[in-house]
């Protein structure tokens, strides 16, 4: 409605080229000025920086981004580097486990919280508080708990169970599970809150109808409620997924990539090559691969959200 109000004013005698310029720049001017930070952010950062990163990932930039065009060299080198390959494998394994466990546990806890339990808000407060903490804090606490010499392992052994072993943090084969325990600790509560909001969004009368139809509670959750929560599920997957791709702080704090390179992740690879390794081209190529991953995750979501709108009610 703002448009029509201003259009009437400018209709007075302006035509042709000037009219076009006026329409583009003067029309609704305060709003455009106010939105300048957003426009700049979108054009310079989200579009400009992305294109810049992609472009320079095809150069041989070392300490400064001035190198010449070398085609896919950086990418070939990237996938020839064991550290990168380990990072990617780790991200896939960790990501799959984290996604599945976060969703399943989040949904399970949300269902339990939905059973008209006592102390619901106390339970929710306890499950969600880790989400308020920094990944650094989370990583350091679990690093201490899993400390093989003085942490949980020693404590249990001192209590008499001498065969007890919990050295995941120092064990290359188990370190991803250590990461998983800490990651779930921080993220499950959030997923639970999302799912609970989804469950509570289901019309009360659906539940009544299911009870009159004699459908058992578990069956109602699985066959009726869960499919109705498609929107929340998709949102949860996208949020958890983009968090997994970004995984960085937690690794830095909990394992710093170790032992050896057994818990390296792509985000850390990028950072190390850009700011410590002095190999900008490599870092940028790795960053572009991360971008590609996100795009691959995002396209089906964007399609479902915006492309398939006609199918939704």
């Amino acid at each position: 409605m703002a448009d029509t109000a201003v259009q009437r004013v400018e209709g007075a005698g302006i035509s042709g080229q000037r009219g076009f310029l006026r329409k583009t720049f003067v029309h609704n001017l305060p709003a455009k000025i106010a939105a300048l930070p957003m426009i700049a952010t979108v054009l310079i950062v989200f579009v400009g920086c992305t294109l810049w990163t992609i472009y320079y990932s095809f150069t041989n930039s070392k300490l400064l981004p001035t190198g010449k065009f070398v085609g896919f060299d950086q990418y070939e080198r990237l996938f020839g580097t064991s550290r990168w390959n380990v990072s990617v494998t780790n991200l896939i394994s960790y990501g799959a486990m984290s996604l599945v466990f976060t969703l399943v546990l989040g949904f399970l806890l949300a269902v339990l919280m939905d059973q008209k339990i006592r102390f619901e808000s106390a339970f929710r407060t306890i499950m969600l508080y880790p989400f308020a903490l920094s990944f650094i804090v989370t990583g350091l606490v679990w690093q201490w708990i899993m400390n093989p010499t003085l942490g949980l392992q020693t404590t249990i052994r001192n209590l008499g169970w001498t065969g007890f072993s919990f050295d995941w943090i120092a064990n290359p084969r188990m370190v991803l599970f250590a990461l998983l325990i800490a990651g779930l600790w921080q993220g499950v509560g959030f997923c639970m809150v999302l799912m609970l909001a989804g469950l509570r969004g289901v019309d009360d009368e659906i539940w009544k109808a299911a009870r009159v139809d004699g459908i058992p509670t578990w069956r109602t959750y699985v066959s009726i409620v869960l499919p109705m929560m498609r929107g929340v599920l998709v949102t949860a997957v996208v949020l958890i997924g983009s968090g997994i791709v970004r995984l960085y702080d937690l690794v830095v704090a909990l394992t710093n990539g170790g032992p050896g390179i057994s818990s390296e992740v792509p985000a850390k690879y990028v950072y190390n090559y850009m700011f410590s390794g002095g190999n900008i081209g490599q870092g940028l190529a790795a960053a572009s691969m991360m971008l590609l991953t996100v795009v691959i995750i995002m396209i089906p979501w964007a399609y479902l959200e915006f492309g398939g709108k006609g199918r939704q009610s």
């Binding site: 950062v45 989200f46 791709v245 850009m274 960053a287 971008l291 996100v294």
Partner: peptide
């Protein structure tokens, strides 16, 4: 359109923007 790109951009890993910034 700006808003759509803004939202889409929020899912891009920060590492992509770090060096240009």
């Amino acid at each position: 359109l700006f808003f759509a790109i803004l939202i889409f951009g929020s899912f891009i890993p920060y590492q992509v923007f770090l060096y240009p910034l």
